[in-house]
Amino acid sequence: MISSNSLIDKKEQRFRSLAFVTIIIIYLLILAGGIVRSTGSGMGCPDWPKCFGRWVPPTEASQLPINYQKIYGAKLKGEVQFNAVKTWIEYANRLLGVLSGFLVFATLLASFTYLRKDKAVIWGSLTAFLLVGINGWLGSRVVATELAQYVITIHLLLAILVVFALLYSWIRSNVYQLDLETINPTGNTLRWLLGITMVLTIGQIVLGAQVRDSLDIVMKRMGYVQRDNWVSNLDWRFYIHRSFSLVILAFHILVVYQVRKWNRAIQIAKLTNGLIALVLVEIGVGVTLAYFSIPAVVQPVHLLLAILMVGLQFSMVLLLTPKLIMPRDRSNVSISKSTVWKTH
Rank of each mutant, 00 (worst) to 15 (best):
M326E: 10
R328F: 15
T288W: 08
R172H: 04
G133W: 01
A84N: 05
E60Q: 13
G286K: 00
I307G: 04
V142N: 09
L167K: 02
F15C: 02
Y257P: 05
L254G: 10
P295V: 04
N135W: 00
L304T: 07
Q63M: 05
Y224R: 12
V225T: 13
C45I: 11
I268D: 05
Y114H: 05
L29K: 02
G53N: 04
L109H: 08
K70Q: 15
I240D: 06
Y91V: 08
I202P: 02
V301L: 11
F292T: 08
L31G: 11
L207P: 04
R37Y: 00
C45E: 03
V287Y: 15
L156K: 04
M309F: 03
I25G: 14
E181G: 09
L166S: 03
G40Y: 03
L29Q: 02
N5D: 10
V340K: 10
Y72T: 02
F129V: 08
W48S: 03
L193C: 15
Q313G: 09
V285M: 03
G195E: 07
I240E: 10
V333P: 09
L31Q: 08
L99D: 09
M43W: 01
K337A: 13
T272R: 07
D235F: 12
P65I: 09
L308H: 00
G53L: 06
K10C: 01
V36A: 03
G33L: 01
G187C: 10
D235Y: 10
F105Y: 06
I71W: 00
P57Y: 07
G208C: 05
K86Y: 08
R54T: 13
Q267G: 02
I26D: 00
F251I: 01
L318S: 06
A277C: 13
S293A: 14
V121P: 08
M316C: 06
V333A: 07
K70F: 07
H302R: 00
H241S: 03
K270F: 13
L304M: 13
F102R: 03
I253N: 09
K323E: 14
S315T: 13
E282F: 06
L167N: 06
N263T: 15
M309R: 02
S4E: 14
I276F: 08
R141K: 15
V199G: 12
I217E: 11
I266E: 11
L131G: 03
L126E: 11
T113R: 02
L215F: 05
T145R: 06
D213S: 12
R14T: 14
N273G: 13
S38D: 02
G97D: 02
N188E: 15
V225D: 14
M1H: 13
V132L: 07
I325T: 03
G44I: 11
L76C: 03
I2Y: 15
N67Y: 04
N332W: 04
T186H: 14
T321W: 02
E12V: 05
F102I: 03
L215Q: 08
I122Y: 08
T343D: 15
S125W: 05
E146M: 12
D216A: 09
S140V: 05
Q63D: 05
N263W: 11
S169V: 01
K117Y: 07
I30V: 15
E181H: 11
Y68H: 13
T272A: 05
L178T: 07
V206L: 04
F251Q: 10
Q177S: 15
N67H: 04
V121S: 06
V285S: 06
L131W: 07
T201R: 09
R116K: 14
L95V: 07
S315A: 14
